[in-house]
Design a protein around this nucleic acid. Structure first.
Lengths: 334, 334
DNA sequence: CTGAAAGCGCTTACAG
DNA sequence: CTGAAAGCGCTTACAG
């Protein structure tokens, strides 16, 4: 491992001034082709690597954004991060992914960020937006949230259109003949939970199917994707209520729902059609594969990057939730 | 968004010199408690955020490592990255995750890295080690690979002990009564494929069960986790060969294997016991949940960080593969 | 206990 | 087309 080579050393070796080396390396038009070639060749031979720190200090800008992602959901964000990465690269920015264990690490995260060479933060989780707002204001750091969970939005926020998406998925189940559709929903604490419930009701209403309270169950409390089964669904099935479809508020609930249905002798999709929401990895791993409402990962990533870049350029951005429509992906489960 | 506040401005506002502010902010013992408090208070009020660039330039070190991860497998690396992140933080290093689309982006990746404020690279994928070696040598950048795929190792490398792990998993199937164990393996191009095949054979031999060529099938060619089923396994079942267990060379193969078995009227684990390798997310999503050999994610992350830090400290590290033992996780599939 | 000054490695007007 | 010099924002001997 050779020690660090500086611009000055390259200049010496090439017999020119540092300014010329700097220009040659950046392809400045004012430098003669011959000099440019020679300098580049020397730089390469010496293993010259420009100091990102010196550059950033000069430019007053790091060209780096930080994306905060909950570790447990890293996979979930795969397609999103890939697009964000490309969108950032197109503007000359790198992306540094910063994994956090839980949402409550937000405070600690911001402390760390105050030392990081970053120009903006993209928070991918339902954090306490108020707290993040204060922390980022304090540091003078632009911030954008990818968040369909927080009720109160005080950050520029990007999300899927939950209500509309849930209606599309539910309507698909209805079109396939379902009438008694269970909603494996949440406890209602989060924004997307109430929105997707509303979308589910919208679809029922549009089809003239009466809403039945007993078909809406809370699968969020104490839920873990590693759970063997889904107790609330098991309870409903044991009660003898006949059902012909299940709409999972998130794909992550589907594997446990499938196991529970199978355990009760119900086959998917013949006895019970199932649809999900997200189109994350779980959707293609279950048997049968899951019909689901795909979140617009690419569009959300582009929108989030745009919101960040606009703040960098000092353009005004509103602290409101931008909701982008998803797409129904039809697979074997419905 | 306020503009950037510098040390000099804080010094002015606090009525002291910049040196004193610098010392006060870093908690230097030579500065009086009164001054320290006052400076800190002013800094906080002004929203002072030290320039990471200026610090890094002064210190000659960024305190940042880059982890290169294939986007498609982001989720797979969740537990690994979390541990790596913590191990790095304990040494005052941040970790920047750099997603790459395919393994062949390695070249492009290194170009980008030459501009990034990083002090070391952790490559999490079976890249062309020769190429990465040359690129990192050129840049004078320490590098460690997490790689159980490459045959030729020219980088300090960390991996799971594949052969031993495969033997443990296969032995477990044998202990559960299996005698005709299919190996859903690979094409043999990669190191872990031959190693896990060897482990499978070790277990058979130890149990006195003859090895049968026809039970080893290639599930790697053209495989995608989104595939409905596993054609090689379907072919084997159609041929009428009786089987009582399946060992999947990676958990990722299990979902398609489960669908194929079910389609052929075979139930898991009653008719066929199944075991996997990795213990990644797929293992808990399938029905029934998968018995599998868990990779030592935490130990691998700690070892990789240690290898990187030793290079930073100019200690010699060998370009060899360190193989760490995994753990059998027993679930319902076997 | 505190401050003035040098210097980390670049880029970019400015002067030739 | 090229170079000497200033300055980005810090930290840290050095001198009080």
């Amino acid at each position: 491992m050779p020690r660090k080579v500086t611009l000055a050393e390259v200049a010496d070796a090439a017999g020119v001034g540092v300014a010329t080396v700097s220009r040659a390396m950046s392809g400045h038009p004012d430098v003669s082709a011959a000099t440019q070639d020679r300098v580049r060749e020397v730089a390469k031979r010496l293993g010259y690597r420009p100091s990102a720190a010196a550059r950033a200090l000069k430019a007053g800008s790091y060209h780096e954004f930080t994306v905060i992602v909950p570790t447990g959901a890293l996979g979930w964000w795969g397609p999103f991060i890939q697009t964000a990465f490309e969108a950032a690269a197109a503007e000359g920015y790198r992306i540094s992914v910063f994994p956090v264990g839980t949402e409550d690490d937000a405070a600690a995260m911001v402390d760390t960020l105050s030392l990081a060479p970053t120009e903006g933060v993209l928070v991918c989780t339902g954090v306490d937006q108020e707290r993040v707002r204060r922390a980022c204001d304090q540091l003078g750091l632009p911030v954008v949230a990818l968040d369909d969970a927080s009720r109160d939005v005080v950050l520029p926020t990007v999300a899927v259109a939950s209500r509309q998406g849930a209606a599309v998925a539910t309507t698909h189940l209805i079109e396939r003949g379902a009438r008694s559709i269970v909603l494996c929903g949440g406890s209602g604490d989060w924004y997307y939970e109430t929105e997707r419930l509303a979308g589910y009701r919208d679809a029922l209403e549009a089809a003239g199917i009466p809403f039945r309270e007993e078909l809406v169950i809370d699968c969020a409390t104490d839920f873990s994707e590693a759970d063997e089964d889904l107790p609330p669904l098991a309870g409903l099935l044991a009660s003898g209520v006949p059902i012909d479809a299940v709409f999972c508020i998130g794909d992550v609930v589907a594997p446990a729902a499938f196991r529970t249905l199978r355990k009760h002798g119900l086959s998917v999709p013949d006895d019970v059609a199932v649809a999900g929401f997200d189109d994350e990895r779980a959707a293609v791993l279950v048997d049968p594969q899951l019909t689901t409402l795909r979140q617009p990962y690419e569009a959300m990533a582009n929108a989030a990057m745009d919101l960040l870049l606009r703040q960098i350029r000092r353009e005004p951005v509103a602290a409101e939730r931008l909701q982008l429509p998803g797409t129904l992906i039809v697979r074997a489960s419905a």
